[in-house]
Design a protein around this nucleic acid. Structure first.
Lengths: 308, 308
DNA sequence: CTGCTAATATAAGTAAAACTTATGGATAAA
DNA sequence: TTTATCCATAAGTTTTACTTATATTAGCAG
């Protein structure tokens, strides 16, 4: 054991002072007195026989050697924090970060979070919208909800939702076009969400869709007008929802994206014909996360919410 | 500042116990009592709320979490030691480790070290023979002398010797073959040191040679017998020197490898024709080494020695 | 199986380190 | 020049790291 590590405690004050270039600010951060910081740094300088700070007016600037040591200390402390993180279990209470696609966040997750927050007021949920999967193991993200499925090493993954695909439109469009039979859909503008990678065979998290109007017409057993010119393609679920909300045609949606709007009457589901099993939404988290207790609270609530 | 680093001192005992899987051995290493180690580890376990060791008979085995933390602590402590090393200046007196090729060590360096030791009896020089360059920045080696030149990050490098290349032989061979003119060399066995990587264009430290008899004959302006069958190739300078010392032909040597033997009369230089500039020997050391004071003493002496 | 040795655990006490409060000195700004 | 801000130092207090003594557990040999 390196004898110099006998005075390893002194490095705490050194590190804080180095970052702030100020003993007072360091003392504030550490919730101790300025005099303590001054003495600890002086003790360190005496033990290693190297001047680490030089006074510049009221500030304490690092010497060249002080900078060198500070770099090493920062790395070492970071490594220790990581080690502690890996072995410790955080309490249930605290911040939890959940990531999903922007559409899922705004159309499904965020409109439901008030229920979670009512039940668990000591857990603050941060919803992080992201167009692609974020690593739950090497970031501060705790839970990811993604459309599709993909093998991710050392990450727990389960099916959260199997979402039917069906057409929705506004009540206005329903009335104007008299949509009493599936064939009548051919009278409308057809809105379809496409996967902008244009690769239906891709295996992994994708956005947004693996189904088209063509699939739905096949299921309904009716011919699709082959020279149908009234169609529009969008690249996110939210765009499609917003289109039909404003009275623009009929949208082949993923159920969960429209569920709250159907319940509120803002949109209607003209026909009880849906593609099943439709989309899979997966739930992912790191079982070895220090925040596993918090993650479990949230994911349990999620699953319960989906049964109601 | 991570609050857990408040108890950073406890990690010293943890680290020693983890390495030894024994509190008693850890105590011995740290020169404290077993009871202190036991209590420090217990305190750490209480603060982080994780069991780090499990008792197996008389041994203390790391738990899975203990192993995880131990890995991080080892890295962090290593980083801190490195930081201390980089800022601390060791005194002039102490051990200095010098590395060079085996041939250079035995033929040039070691035969001269007695002079250095006479002048600086408090600096103990350890000559480390190595066939390849050893990193002076991340090892305990202080000074490297290598043939050739190569860019090494954060390492001071300068030319130590520009060594002429010329033929040497034993006085006996000189007399037997009557080598009074360069053409007479064709009567002898020609010994040549080759670079066993067989890549003359390689940029970096190489061993041993970038020159051949062909080069020397060109310089001397005489034709080399094209079907010369009396030749031998060796892969180190020392082999070549030993060959001619035993009366075997004539060797195209690097000056410094034969200098002391020429001065003593054991070998002779038949002709005053030499390839110049010949080989470059470089001196390398880490300017940020804690032993820089000692390194400077040695390198200054080296350069002085070469001017005499 | 018994007795002994080796190793860790725990309790009480001591020594050293980390911190506090009070005050002085230096620098910057008004 | 005065005032405010920041670090340095001294003396005292609190906390942590260590000691010694003893208890407990495990392993080994006869």
């Amino acid at each position: 054991m390196d004898k110099r590590l006998r005075h390893i405690s002194l490095l705490r004050c050194f590190d804080a002072a180095a970052r702030h270039q100020s003993y007072s600010l360091a003392a504030e951060e550490l919730s101790i007195s300025q005099a303590a910081v001054s003495q600890q740094v002086r003790n360190l300088e005496e033990h290693v026989q190297v001047k680490l700070f030089s006074r510049e007016g009221r500030a304490m600037r690092l010497t060249k050697q002080g900078k060198t040591l500070s770099n090493s200390v920062t790395k070492a402390f970071s490594e220790l924090s990581l080690g502690f993180d890996r072995i410790q279990i955080e309490p249930e209470n605290g911040v939890l970060t959940v990531t999903a696609s922007p559409s899922f966040c705004s159309r499904w997750l965020v409109p439901r979070l008030w229920k979670f927050s009512s039940l668990y007021p000591d857990i603050q949920v941060r919803a992080l919208a992201s167009a692609q999967y974020e690593d739950v193991r090497h970031s501060e993200i705790d839970v990811a909800i993604r459309q599709g499925e993909k093998q991710v090493d050392n990450v727990h993954q389960e099916t959260l939702i199997l979402d039917p695909i069906f057409p929705v439109c506004s009540p206005k469009v329903l009335e104007e076009h008299g949509l009493t039979s599936p064939e009548h859909i051919n009278k409308c503008w057809l809105v379809e969400a496409i996967d902008h990678t244009c690769n239906k065979a891709s295996n992994g998290f994708n956005s947004p869709n693996g189904f088209s109007w063509h699939d739905w017409f096949n299921l309904a057993g009716i011919p699709m007008n082959q020279d149908h010119h009234k169609w529009m393609e969008v690249t996110t679920w939210e765009m499609g929802i917003n289109a039909v909300l404003s009275g623009h045609g009929i949208f082949l949606t993923s159920g969960c994206m429209a569920q709250d709007l159907i319940e509120s009457g803002a949109l209607v589901k003209p026909f009880d014909i849906q593609i099943e099993p439709g989309l899979k939404f997966s739930l992912l988290y790191d079982e070895e996360s220090p925040r596993i207790a918090r993650i479990n609270v949230f994911t349990d609530w999620l699953k319960q919410e989906l049964q109601n």
